[in-house]
Each structure stands twice: as structure tokens, then as C-alpha cells.
Simulated scan of single mutants.
Amino acid sequence: MASIQAGQTDKSPQGQDEFDNPPKGPVGVHRGPKSLWIRALPYLIVILLAVVCGVGVWAGVSGFLPWQQQKPATTSQAIKKPSISRKSTSTPSKKAKEATPAPSSPVQEPSQTPSTPAPVIDKNTRVLIVNGTGVSGYAGSKRQILVNAGYGAVTASNPTGSLPSADVVWYQNEADRATAQDVAAQLGIARVEQLAEAGSPVEVVLMR
């Protein structure tokens, strides 16, 4: 292949192109202008890293992370039971017991009810014995029993009116009640009654 001499025009049928006269200076791959997002991305990364570092430092100091939920305090921790002092429940000492005055018992006032006098047996009271049995001498035998007991005014007689159904000792006044009860006890009679119409302060009616 013949070499082309200097100063001679290349008369090859191919002709000249842009590679025959390369531009001066470095030649590289053509790059278009960068977008705003790509140019701002490094700054955003730096800001994000600064925020993460700041949060990490704050969490390390305070011991709390924002994504951690704080657990509510349990009932046993939130409500503290009051402590019971043993001194309040301790048994008081012997000196404290002695120092505490005993409650004074109320003074009982004397009863205002008048005392009832004891029943008095008056063996001088007149006693009438009525024989309702129809047996002769029966009233006299009972009279002797009372005389032997100390009665000094005892008389025996026959009935003059209506008679009771059983033996009875009547007395006219309440003051003769004790005497009538004693007469009934001496003669073995259980029935003692007050009768204002009795023929004597104490009247005995025999029906058996």
C-alpha cells in the first residue's frame, strides 16, 4: 500500500470524516447535566446520618427509645400497700395496763320501792271453825289442834248458811292473811281465800 506523502491531498474514494481531524484537548464520553435530586442526594444522606446519630446519643443519655412503648406500671408497683407498724399492734406493756384507769362502775342508787313488811301471824286473832261434815265433835277436834298450836280465841259452831264444796279458810282483811295461811297449814287445808263477808277475821269451814 503506497504511503501518502505530506502535503498531498488524500484522493481516496472514501473521503475525510471527523476522525481525520480530531479536536484538540482530551476527548471522553459525553455526559449530560446532572438532575437536582442526584446533586442533593449526598446532602440528604449527611442530614439523615446526623439525625440518626443525634437520636442515638439522646437515647443513650435518657435510656428511652422512641419506638419502644413504655409498659404501664403493674398494680403491685403502682399501689404501694401501707406498711403496718408492729408497735401499733403490739400488746401494751404491764406498766401501760396499770396506768390505764379501769372504767368505774355506775353507782347503784338504793331502790326507792318501799320494803313490804313481813307477814305477821297473830294467834290472838278470833278463829271460827264451822262443821259442815255433819260429824258430831269434828269441829271440836280441829279446834283443839289450833289451841295446841298457841291460838287462844278459837270457837267451833254448826253451819247457818250456804257451804262451799270443799274445805276452805277465809279471812276478812289482808292483815289476817298470814294468820289464815298458818291456820290452814295446821289443819291440812290447801284452799285459802279472802272473803269480806266471813263470820270472823279467820273462818274455817270443814266439808270432809
Rank of each mutant, 00 (worst) to 15 (best):
17 D>F: 00
43 Y>A: 15
206 L>T: 09
158 N>L: 06
159 P>D: 04
91 T>A: 08
16 Q>A: 15
175 A>Q: 14
10 D>G: 11
6 A>L: 03
140 G>V: 01
156 A>M: 10
109 E>L: 14
107 V>Q: 10
58 W>C: 05
97 K>F: 09
198 A>H: 12
196 A>C: 05
90 S>D: 14
163 L>R: 02
34 K>E: 06
110 P>D: 10
110 P>I: 08
183 V>M: 05
54 G>M: 09
9 T>K: 13
85 S>M: 08
147 V>S: 08
98 E>K: 12
19 F>Q: 15
205 V>K: 00
33 P>V: 09
168 V>P: 00
25 G>T: 02
200 S>G: 14
31 R>Y: 15
143 R>I: 01
33 P>M: 06
86 R>P: 13
136 S>W: 02
206 L>F: 09
36 L>G: 14
112 Q>I: 15
16 Q>Y: 07
34 K>A: 05
51 V>T: 10
101 P>H: 05
99 A>F: 13
142 K>W: 08
64 F>A: 10
2 A>M: 05
138 Y>N: 01
169 V>K: 03
158 N>P: 06
35 S>N: 15
79 I>S: 02
23 P>T: 02
136 S>I: 04
78 A>S: 10
182 D>T: 11
55 V>C: 03
208 R>M: 04
145 I>M: 11
159 P>F: 01
35 S>H: 09
102 A>I: 15
156 A>I: 03
60 G>K: 12
5 Q>W: 11
120 V>A: 06
